[in-house]
């Protein structure tokens, strides 16, 4: 049984610190080329198919802007 996950980033709250990126074990996340209204390149799921919904990114996010979803497939 495999786990499929997804994250939703509150892009307005994200400050693009990249701490989620380096804590993602499956290289799911990258910083967007676009910026939010504060000028930050926010985090997004660059490779959604990699996500297992492990919650590591959300756990380390200092601005608590990541919501995590997970299903068993």
């Amino acid at each position: 049984m495999a786990l499929r996950g997804a994250i939703v980033v509150d892009t307005e709250k994200c400050k693009g610190c990249s701490v989620c990126l380096v804590n993602c074990p499956t290289n799911t996340i990258a910083l967007a080329k676009e910026v939010n209204s504060k000028g930050y390149n926010y985090a997004y799921m660059a490779f959604p198919e990699n996500c297992t919904g492990c919650t590591n990114c959300a756990t380390v996010c200092p601005d608590t802007c990541i919501t995590v979803y997970r299903v068993k497939v």
């Binding site: 499929r4 996950g5 997804a6 939703v8 959604p48 919904g53 919650t55 959300a58 756990t59 608590t64 802007c65 990541i66 919501t67 995590v68 979803y69 997970r70 299903v71």
Partner: peptide, 15 residues
């Protein structure tokens, strides 16, 4: 993605 991002599948959100 829309099948994953559903309230019943939420495992982490802001307290």
């Amino acid at each position: 993605l829309k099948d994953i991002i559903k309230p019943e599948n939420k495992v982490y959100s802001k307290s």
